[in-house]
Design a protein around this nucleic acid. Structure first.
Lengths: 256, 256
DNA sequence: CCAAAAGTGTTCAACCTACACCCATGC
DNA sequence: GCATGGGTGTAGGTTGAACACTTTTGG
């Protein structure tokens, strides 16, 4: 999946409400805000049922014998094929009316999800995670049934969303900003090696503000977790920037 | 309730499992870590069933038509009679095995809670809040049935706890520490007026470390949210400290 | 007058900000 | 050589830690 196309993933529809109730917790769900950084922008992964104009966050349910954290991981794996992802619980969306979105109801109905439509729009308390993905190339795994659209969207261009997902994303961004200052989670959003200007652009995308080049450089170097490697020349008519890498042994201490 | 005695509150037992399932969400619960500050120590409110040696956090369940935040507030009100409390969601305890605590099962059984024993030890995802209470004087409201012990416990002297409540308290303290630096929540733990040494001792209790007197004073004054009132002399053979008050108009901006 | 507690001042280092200057590269 | 982008240095301000000094009060 490139960063500009949209893609289609299948979601299973052979399930019915009885099956869901048997295997899953009935009034808890999971929603994940997947962040990815590319094209100098912070992106969020969104889904759209083909029967709706509105997008939504990926999510899932918790098996009865499964930890909530496990369920969040399983969910991401099922959807993206990725398993070494930074995952952080950050919020519980618990308003009683949050699943009563007529747009969602309508979309589910048209979509042919009658068998679990009730289940999907029943009152749910949603445990929200944010996840950091350094590559937007998703290995899609789900192999059955109906198709929906999946898309990386820049955070400053979010379309209308179902349920309370706009608010959930806002909270996720706020939390990501706070965590960026306390932990060294930029590792999870970049390739293994990167230049200082690239790192700076990531910070600018997350905080949605410009930073001063020279001061940013010093700040990062003072953290004492960067290893300077060789230089990398991109063919541009300017000086070649150094490549850096996060020093794994030093990061552990900072990662809470 | 003074700060040294333990107290007994009644909890209702006329309910049975069918009633619970009809009115409440089945696999979500709430736990609250109530913090109070007195005797120069940070305290947590703990309950103990008279049939157990182990203490536990107060908690409750969520009505089907009720927001989770509302439920947390209702819960606190029912238990303490207090309604202007600072309440902050901070964690979801979601491990599958967390409610399988043989000590708890045993205590519930002996306690005569057969009718909802199954309900109480069924797998539950717990939304955890911390709350700030500036007065340990609780107005107890619940008026029926069985008695259990309720006690303010200094955080450095926590007894053995049921379920995963020790871990929940640890996380609550960590979160409280982070929040103390970002917001001005000390208001909720002190009387309206206080002296600088009193404020310092609160910080020392929360961070569990000594702070330098002169620097602490400057730091607090530089926040520009304190109003200096008169002096207060306690009869001690030393200089009388000033009284301070948080300036309500300036606090709002800092309270997120 | 002394001890104890509270308030204030001084110094030093760390760090942030702004801005200037130097280096490498392609056209 | 010059525009562009990257790297480094410097001056000024702010912040925080450590510690010394002063003020108030009771015995």
């Amino acid at each position: 999946m490139t960063t500009t196309e949209t893609f289609h993933i299948p979601i299973p529809v052979h399930v019915d409400e009885t099956m869901m109730k048997e295997h899953f917790l009935t009034d808890v769900s999971i929603n994940s805000v997947l962040f990815s950084y590319h094209d100098e922008k912070l992106h969020v992964l969104l889904l759209r049922l083909t029967t709706s104009d509105h997008f939504m966050l990926p999510g899932g349910f918790i098996k009865k014998e499964e930890d909530v954290d496990e369920a969040a991981i399983r969910n991401l794996e099922e959807m993206t094929g990725l398993d070494q992802i930074y995952l952080q619980q950050f919020y519980v969306a618990g308003n009683a009316g949050r699943t009563c979105d007529p747009n969602a109801l309508d979309a589910f109905k048209k979509f042919g999800l009658q068998k679990i439509e009730q289940w999907l729009t029943d009152r749910k308390v949603s445990v929200c995670y944010y996840a950091l993905v350094n590559s937007p190339e998703l290995q899609l795994k789900v192999n059955e049934a109906i198709i929906c659209e999946i898309k990386w969207t820049p955070v400053e261009e979010l379309p209308p969303l179902l349920f309370d997902h706009q608010m959930v994303i806002d909270k996720a961004i706020r939390r990501l900003q706070l965590d960026m200052d306390r932990k060294v989670i930029s590792t999870y959003l970049l390739n293994e090696t990167f230049t200082m200007p690239e790192l700076q652009k990531l910070y600018e995308a997350v905080y949605q503000e410009k930073l001063t080049r020279s001061n940013f450089q010093r700040r990062m170097l003072n953290l004492d977790i960067l290893e300077r490697l060789g230089k990398r020349h991109d063919g541009g008519s300017h000086r070649a920037p150094y490549l850096y890498r996060f020093n794994p042994s030093k990061i552990e201490m900072v990662l809470n």
